[in-house]
Structure formats: structure tokens, C-alpha cells
Design a protein around this nucleic acid. Structure first.
Lengths: 113, 113
DNA sequence: TTGATAGGTGACTAAATGGTCACCTATTAT
DNA sequence: ATAATAGGTGACCATTTAGTCACCTATCAA
């Protein structure tokens, strides 16, 4: 199995910016868009700004570039997100669940009293 | 039901810093620590640096302060993390799953050929 | 009441970040 | 061959961020 190391830190950092999350969302809707296609979605920013954000996403391996001729297509890579979810987020989510259970038990106990 | 609005942006931002994630992890291990207790864990940073990070975590509602006398105890709040997981991350995780299924089918098909 | 302890504030600095621009290269179309 | 198109680079600037420090306030203990 090809396990490759994805630095979680880079993933968290990449997800911190709303523009970058928008880019991921755009690729989620239509995968494999070109740079100019993506840049076209952002009225308020030049192509260069978008390119910088894409570079950050690539570094975190959240997006995979495929060059063909003079164009470059970006593909979403859900693996790092999945890893962050499993290795980090899930443990807090579990605690959330147990908090809800505790709350429910509390309510039930209160109602019975 | 008391639904309160947690700006996802603040949560993502807060999680972007490794020190802040370490703080959450520390509270995960032992909830309700005081500021000085938490600050004591970071050799390389002064109390003031830690306090700033705590302020960011509070703003994102990831941590809830409870003051008693001259001390302040910090409690982990897993709700915002849960919300980010549900509203944002899960949709990518699903795609990850389907990617794995597709991979499996591809492998199976290849082996049969 | 004096001193120690827990925490807070505002000013400041260095570094990182987000963004633009001028200009360049490679590919494709006419 | 020329022009148009897609993308890339490096310099540059403004703002934000991480971090420290001097100093202050409130609580608790002797």
C-alpha cells in the first residue's frame, strides 16, 4: 500500500482560509477545473491571488495538479481531509456524543424526578 | 433548544495553529485546567503567548472559561468541532469512501481480467 | 496589612500572509 | 510566423499574527 506522509499541520493551515475552502468547494462541484476557470469565479481577486491559494492547497496535498499542454487541471484529493477527520477530529466528536448522552440522561432523570 | 451561532471561519482559523491544537489536546487529557497550569506546559513560550492563544480559542467557542476567585478554568467545548465535522468535513469524507470503493472495484475488475 | 499569586491590558516588534503587478515561457490557433 | 492563450516567477507592499514586556488589578494567605 502506498502510504505517504501528509503533514496535518499543512492541512489545518490550508483549511484556515475561506478562499481556499471556497476553491475546494468549487472543485467538489466540478472536479478537474483549470486555473483560469477557478480564477474566473473570484471577481474580487486576481489570477495571481488564486494561484497562491492553489499552491498552498497543493502543498497540503488537498489538490492534485495534472498538466496537459499549456493547461493545468486541479483535482480534489479527499485523503488528507479524511486523515484529519480520523486522527484528530473524531476523538472530539466522540466526546461530543458522550456529552449529548449525558445531557439526555440528565434530562430523563430530571423528568422522572 | 439553545442553538447558538458558531462562525465556522473562527473555528478553522483557531485550529490552524499547532500551539492551539496542543492546548485543546491538553484539555482533552485533563479538562478544566487553569491558565497558569496550561502555560506551564509550554517551556518555549511565556504565559502571555499562551493567553493570546486561549483568547483565540475562546472566540471560536472551542474553550469555555469559568472564573472562580482569582483563577480561571478552561473547559473544552466539542460542539464547534462537531459542527465543522458535520457541515463541512463529512461531505469530503464521503467522497473519500466512494473513492475507496471505486478503487476496490477497479482492483477486483483488474484481477478478474 | 503586607506580600504573594492568578490573571489581564496595551504597546511594541518580527515574521508570516494575502494580494498585486510587471514580465516571462510554453503551447495552441490563424 | 504571428498572435493569442494558459500558466508561472520574483519583487514588492499592506495587514495580520505570534510573541514579549512593563505594568496593573484582584484575590488569597500570613
Amino acid at each position: 500500500m502506498v502510504t505517504y506522509y501528509v503533514p496535518m499541520d499543512a492541512v489545518f493551515r490550508a483549511l484556515a482560509d475561506p478562499t481556499r475552502r471556497e476553491l475546494l468547494d468549487a472543485l467538489f462541484v466540478e472536479d478537474g477545473q483549470t486555473v483560469t476557470q477557478l480564477a474566473g469565479r473570484f471577481e474580487e481577486m486576481t489570477r495571481f491571488g488564486v494561484m497562491k491559494h492553489l499552491a498552498v492547497l497543493e502543498e497540503a496535498d488537498l489538490v492534485i495538479p495534472v498538466r496537459q499542454g499549456r493547461t493545468k487541471r486541479l483535482y480534489l484529493n479527499p485523503v488528507p481531509i479524511e486523515q484529519v477527520a480520523n486522527r484528530w477530529i473524531s476523538k472530539y466528536a466522540e466526546r461530543f456524543t458522550s456529552a449529548l448522552v449525558a445531557l439526555d440522561q440528565h434530562i430523563t432523570a430530571t423528568e422522572e424526578a
